[in-house]
Amino acid sequence: MSAAPRTIRFTLNGSAVEATFPPHLSLIELLREQFDLFGARESCGQGLCGCCTVLVDGNAVSSCLYLAAFADGAEILTVEHLARDGRLDPVQQAFIEAGAFQCGFCTPGFVLMTKQLLDDHPDPTDDQIGHYLSGNLCRCGTYPEIIAAVLDASHCLTVSL
């Protein structure tokens, strides 16, 4: 019976939305196919690279391993929501200033994980940076610049607190 499409309601980037889909859809498929949100990307498909990172109720998750049906009632934020009114989030700004990407495919994931890191640890230690960002992969090898961006953003956020 419930292999049939189901309808759920949730908040997506601040707006109440509704979607109807079969249960075997992943959250990333839902976001791309029904909401034209392409900032989260499926790469490894295994929870390891972080390219598909989105926030569910404030917690970063791999949307490639998250059933879309579990978004029911949740608040979902994607990278598209970070820049408001044309103003970049300080983390995004820090990534630009530190040159923290090459191809950019991994970047939205790193930006969102950095948000999560700085929410939990505004002034992170090297270990904390390692523990939060070790679940994201950058094949271009831009890690040194990413670490610099995290520290820049942390500095900028703690100063403006």
Binding site: E80, I96, F101, G104, T107, P108
Partner: peptide, 21 residues
């Protein structure tokens, strides 16, 4: 000149165009 990449903004906001999309 070490200018940031010209597409920097598109890459951090997730709007950069890839055929993937």
């Amino acid at each position: 000149r070490s200018i940031p990449r010209v597409e920097a903004r598109a890459k951090v906001t997730g709007t950069a165009e890839y055929i993937h999309n």
